[in-house]
Every structure is written in structure tokens, then in C-alpha cells.
Design a protein around this nucleic acid. Structure first.
Lengths: 73, 73
DNA sequence: GCCTGGTGGAAAGCGAACTTGACACGGGTC
DNA sequence: GACCCGTGTCAAGTTCGCTTTCCACCAGGC
């Protein structure tokens, strides 16, 4: 697994009562991508991270945060 | 070209008088990666974007910004 | 003129991000 | 039981991030 970041996607999505499909549509990505990011299979690209922060009306740092448990340095 | 974001890497690096190699070393990536990002060949990954913001002591939004010229929205 | 060192740039390969398509599970409606 | 919705996961394919490798430019020593 290659995820270096933790994210609050699932919580933020639940707060707005959006399905994965609804969020995916707002982000212009596939539902599988949203699912994969939520379940920690990979981190989004930076452009997608900007879109994610945008649809939630937050800063990127408020959605994603470095997971120091995983950073080997 | 697929860059959806503009970045201020070159300016920020110049302000600190760092070479591409110096910055690459601080980021734990190759010098070519720094060069490619600076010259707009691609956007960094989100984890790398966090590191970049960190070494400059800035928020991601202060280093990268959506390039609305390219976003067909 | 020639070699060396330090900077910036570009092509090829590998793995990760993202896509479409399919299948499985649980809950609600009929 | 059959159908729809939301979710989780796998397979296969394409594009992009990053590394490795190689090239060009400029300055200094001999």
C-alpha cells in the first residue's frame, strides 16, 4: 500500500449526505476513485485534491493531513 | 501537456537561493522531478506537494494554485 | 584546445493514479 | 423472491508522477 496521507473524505461526505457517486460526479472522477481514496488504496493527485477541497469549501490541509505513522523518515 | 496547476516553485527557490539539487535533496526526490515540476511538465503528487509546502514553510495553496486558463469549466 | 564541475533540460522505464466494466453484499420497497 | 440503491472489490487498460540515464550550456584550471 502506498498511502502517505490520511483524509477525512468519508466524514465530510457523510456530513453532507452525499453518496460516493454524488461526490464523484461533483469531482468529475469515477466512483471507484472516490472509493479507493476513502478506503486508503491511494492518494489523489494534487489537481484532484484541489477539487476535493473546493467542493467541500475547505483548504487542502483541512481535508488531508500527513500520516506520520507511515512516513519512514 | 497535462498540468492543471500553476506553481511558484522557481520563485520560492530563488528567494532562498537554492539550486534545483538543493531543493530536491530537501524533498527527498530527484533533481529532475523538481525541474519537471518547475517547467510545468507535470504536477507533483499530493504527498510531495505537502513536503514542498513544508520545506518552504507555506500552505499548499500558497505554492500551487488552480490554473483556470486550463480548466474547461 | 581540452578536461572537470555545477547548473538546467529531456527521453525511456516503472509504478501509481484514474478509467470502464463486472460481480458480491446488505438494506429497503413491493 | 425480485428490484433498486449504496458500498466494496477485482481485472485490465491508459495516463501521469518519479527515477534513471543522457545531453547542452557556462565558467575555471591547465
Amino acid at each position: 500500500m502506498g498511502c502517505a496521507l490520511k483524509n477525512r473524505l468519508r466524514v465530510l461526505r457523510a456530513e453532507r449526505d452525499w453518496s460516493q457517486q454524488e461526490l464523484a460526479d461533483r469531482l468529475s472522477v469515477s466512483r471507484q476513485s472516490v472509493n479507493a481514496i476513502e478506503t486508503g488504496r491511494y492518494d489523489p493527485s494534487l489537481p484532484l485534491a484541489f477539487r476535493i477541497a473546493d467542493v467541500f469549501g475547505l483548504a487542502i490541509e483541512q481535508v488531508f493531513e500527513p500520516d506520520r505513522e507511515r512516513q519512514t523518515g
